[in-house]
Amino acid sequence: MADNDNNNATIIVMSGDMDKVFAAFIIATGAAAAGMDTTMFFTFWGVKAIQKGNLTGKGLFGRMMGLMNRGGINVIGPSRFNFGGIGRWMFKKMMGDKGVASLEELRQMAIDLDVHLLGCGMSMDVMEISREDLIDEVEDIVGVGTMLNLAANSKVQLFI
């Protein structure tokens, strides 16, 4: 049964773009700071935000995918104005100059505030990303059932 008297937040992170992952981690740290039991579920492109950054994949396509998608949270580019990496550099510089925390710092803060990080099993299977390719803080690899159960028991449900 859904618990209507909860104080939980569930954030589904589908995007792997810098700006959207930023939004996800800012909301997650804010929610956790406010005492909400917060879970982030990373699926498809979002999985990159919890990857260590090593090359992944087993078969030809998986390895090609891994090569195209290599690097961890620090190398993801913005959804607009990336211009082959120049945009990423520019955004990082502008944010750094203004004292905005980096994605890695934000992710660490989320971990420190006990945000639960979950990986999507199906996406990882398709893209040939294994548990060992994810950062150690990821709590579990789950599916849509778990995600929906969490979302149904949350006051805040976001899909980014």
Binding site: T29, G30, A33, M109
Partner: peptide, 8 residues
């Protein structure tokens, strides 16, 4: 520091 760090 900027949002959300003061709160965090």
């Amino acid at each position: 520091q900027m949002c959300p760090m003061p709160i965090a």
